[in-house]
Design a binder for these strands. Structure first.
Lengths: 303, 303
DNA sequence: CCCGGTGATGCCTTCAGGGTATCACCACAG
DNA sequence: CTGTGGTGATACCCTGAAGGCATCACCGGG
């Protein structure tokens, strides 16, 4: 009758490993049990999920579909647990995640004016975990930068901001007023995020070094392992003696959005989204936040 | 460990009825079983969900949070079942839902050019079921009209279109070129949708008659039970001898969006969204779809 | 003070989920 | 050609949770 989430979790493990024995090992159950559970799941769904021919387990079309759906589904069950526990503790906290350089406090203050009983917590998130943090409920709402996997999320565009190139101090373009993408073509790239989550979408197809967070980016660039790109506002908060920032106006601007887990039904969250939208308009248009207005053109709001 | 969806479904029933005995009856299980299952769920979540004091069961804060989350979660499990079954049948179909008057075929044709192997099915949806149809997978993608409960959905705005007032033939404004909201203030309203799903958000707070679909709306208006409002394009497809349409330019325009279940991860769906966005731009701007470009006053009237 | 209706408890049965031992199959080394 | 290692499937048993039935504890209204 109801989908069995335990079997679904087992399925995900088998689908990842494509090996019953090792999957069972990881799940700390015996292999025969796993075989039976998967078969039961197949019977329940009325579809075979794996082809077990000689030497090798392979996903069927149905299996691929289930694997694609299972992740968000399991994540949202975890999110439900978190939210219920929070509500049971008489939760008056809202966890707001943000990528480096995005100002959270204006929206938080506007929000706390309307909800004096709710405490806003803020927490840094990174490109490689921003979606997961939202999906499993570790943050209620997140200021994210594109690209992001929208599956399971409600994503509201806020504004865009130009990007800067991050170059080692001795770089041949380090003294330029600005650079173009063509100038830097062929340079090895220090890219932001885990290669398994965002293998495409990087500005250059070059091999390079995967990093987490702005600090690591700066260290790698300073060490001469490559160059990188940052949203301009992020560059304001981080500096390194052996690194320089050079505007690269040609590069597509960084898009800042507000994201909420699609399963997250809460008036409090909705109110924060509203507050964030109006304060984003103010920061973008009036520039009462210094770093937005630093040099160059004002940040443009994204339609 | 894993959330138990059976218990969750039981919980939803109890939370709806606020009565263990009747909930058990509806679930076709014995009442003691239900009591134990709910208690087990409370223990599993580490939170009490109901206050069972004398004469009445009441939801706690945690229970309200769980009730809000449980619906989308259970719906998405049904959606997963549907999608897996579809994939197992070697599904090459895409079910597209649409509200009355929204042209689907341009996007469907553009989509089928890119996916000759996929058959696009279209299906009418209504304001009171548009979200549910998407959430439980009965349609893969939906052309919806706002307002819609965005929980569990990814909603992409497409365009807006003006609305018309729907008046009985003998109405005092039936011969006007256009009317304003103030003109019609105080008129009883035939509103679209189930009162439990959209009790707010109607243009007027008047009492009125809930209906499903455009046909019923016209019947009620023709019978003199009230007036109503429609997107202009919807009015093109439906006529009634005793009903006239009058433009009401002042009223906020109807917003047409494309919605997808947030849990629905599929390249095919993403491609349809892309196709819909570009064709929406074309229909809105170039007017190769007649009814979109009809001049504001060219709305059809029926004496 | 009893009575009807509520949800909770106690006890039993059934069956799904877990374990161990083993089989059937196949590639490959000797 | 045959043994061997490694794969997933099958057989069989045990435990615990879900279900049913009977009953209790509680409380408001005659």
């Amino acid at each position: 009758m109801d989908l069995d989430l335990r079997k679904l979790r087992y399925f995900v493990t088998v689908a990842d490993r494509l090996h019953f024995g090792r999957a069972a090992d990881e799940l700390h159950i015996a292999q025969p049990v796993l075989s039976r559970q998967i078969r039961a799941l197949e019977q329940d769904l009325g579809a075979s999920l794996f082809t077990r021919d000689r030497h090798g387990v392979e996903l069927t079309d149905a299996g691929r579909q289930l694997l694609a759906d299972a992740g968000p589904l399991l994540a949202s069950t975890h999110a439900v647990r978190r939210r219920v526990s929070a509500a049971a503790r008489g939760n008056r906290r809202l966890m707001v995640g943000f990528r480096a350089g995005i100002p959270v406090m204006p929206a938080a203050r506007a929000f706390e004016d309307r909800h004096p009983d709710v405490v806003v917590d803020v927490q840094r998130i990174e490109g490689d975990n921003q979606a997961a943090m939202l999906l499993d409920g570790r943050v209620d709402v997140g200021y994210v930068r594109l690209p992001i996997d929208e599956a399971g999320l409600r994503v509201t565009p806020l504004y865009t901001e130009p990007r800067v190139a991050v170059l080692p101090a001795g770089h041949r373009f380090a003294d330029k007023e600005e650079v173009t993408e063509a100038d830097l073509a062929g340079e090895p790239l220090v890219w932001h995020g885990d290669p398994s989550t965002q293998p495409t979408k990087r500005p250059h197809p070059n091999a390079g070094y995967p990093v987490r967070g702005v600090d690591e980016t700066l260290e790698h660039v300073a060490a001469g392992r490559g160059i990188s790109f940052l949203a301009r506002s992020a560059s304001v908060f981080y500096s390194h003696p052996d690194v320089v920032y050079v505007p690269i106006p040609e590069l597509a601007p960084d898009q800042v959005c507000l994201a909420v887990a699609a399963s997250h039904t809460s008036l409090v969250v909705d109110d924060f989204v509203t507050a964030a939208q109006s304060t984003a308009e103010i920061t973008a248009e009036c520039g009462n936040y210094e770093m937005w207005q630093r040099g160059g053109d004002a940040v443009t709001r994204h339609a």
